[in-house]
Design a protein around this nucleic acid. Structure first.
Length: 115
DNA sequence: TAGCTGACGCCCT
DNA sequence: CAGGGCGCCAGCT
């Protein structure tokens, strides 16, 4: 394919792309995505980006994105209170007390779209 | 138009 | 050890 200009695309769009690359049964952190986009510290924006998208409509597995502690901080924004946890469990991820068990093991480090 | 907020992360006190 | 504050970038009001 033609060389996609990563800088040409808004940070917003890039976040969506990266999150989509997260395989089932794996999770990542906001900071990892932000850092992946060469924007360390912009982790806030990552979660904020997911908030404005229709994850179920866009097909973006936002439930696979948790905070640096492996805590399901974004679950409160889901329609159900345990929707996020339920989705993760559905993929084989253990979730206890709103926290991903063995977060380090299921942690997936996303790579830049440019590759 | 300018300012504020926001699903976080790391440093300082 | 715990709590509070600042920084990140871009969309909203």
């Amino acid at each position: 394919m033609n060389p996609i200009n990563p800088l040409n695309e808004n940070f917003f769009h890039r976040v969506h792309v990266v999150v989509k690359t997260i395989p089932p049964g794996r999770v990542t952190s906001y900071g990892a995505i932000a850092q992946c986009l060469s924007a360390p510290g912009a982790a806030r924006m990552v979660g904020w980006a997911l908030n404005k998208i229709n994850w179920f409509e866009s097909g973006i597995p936002a439930h696979r994105v948790v905070n640096r502690n492996g805590l399901l901080t974004g679950k409160m924004h889901f329609p159900g209170e345990h929707t996020m946890a339920d989705l993760l469990r559905s993929e084989g991820i253990e979730v206890v007390n709103n926290q991903v068990v063995d977060f380090k093991k299921v942690f997936f480090r996303p790579k830049p779209p440019l590759d």
